[in-house]
Amino acid sequence: MIVTRPRDWALVRAQLADLHAKRVFIMGCGQCATVTETGGEKEVLAAKARLEQEGVEVTGWSIGEVACHASGQRLEVRKHFGEFSSADAVLVLACGAGVQTTADVTDKPVTPGLDSLFLGTVVRHGVFEERCQMCGECVLDRTAGICPVTTCPKGLLNGPCGGMWNGMCEVLRDRECVHVRIRERLAAQGRAVSAVPLPPKDHSKKLKPGSIDMRAGRKKSRHGGA
């Protein structure tokens, strides 16, 4: 789940003013931003009402299945062709990937309505915690399914650091130290608690910018080849 947060409304209005946008099309996202209640139908309609109240015309709105899918967004633009054409700008209530995907499939200026925060878990309704930094080199097999890279505020692979006190974190004092949690879970599962330290992270495994073609090298069997 990509967790997002609404941008300050005054900032959103300033973005639209910069674009001289008197007519706006709004796009939400049917996946993450719907779950986080930042870019689902309710939030898109609320943004529409607010813009209209403030004198901005909303030419239309749509919520595709998922805003970060290029073909899907292309389809949304086609479905709402007239409403898109008459808009000066597109306000996207989705994560950064959704905003960019939309920008790639329309000639209209696109502007973000949300800030993207992290990839995380829905702990319970409305409560989200980061779980993965997508480092390209998973260590969860060694760390009892708890990611120290993400959940230790210092991102230490081996710990705890000197700040741990009574099992609690020094930086985020209301949280348990993840390195203590890792060792306790390993012990509870009968696994070795003290092992060879994890080696330094290979930061070259983190693709930057991330780009991958899963089809590359795949056999062309679909096309009759062997």
């Binding site: 505020p153 210092k154 991102g155 692979l157 081996n158 710990g159 930086v171 330290p197 330094p200 930061h203």
Partner: peptide, 18 residues
């Protein structure tokens, strides 16, 4: 975050054991 430049990036490319 506990120091006098709380805006700084904590590097921690290595930990103390490493």
């Amino acid at each position: 975050r506990g120091g006098d430049h709380p805006e700084a990036k904590g590097v921690f490319d290595l930990d103390s054991t490493q």
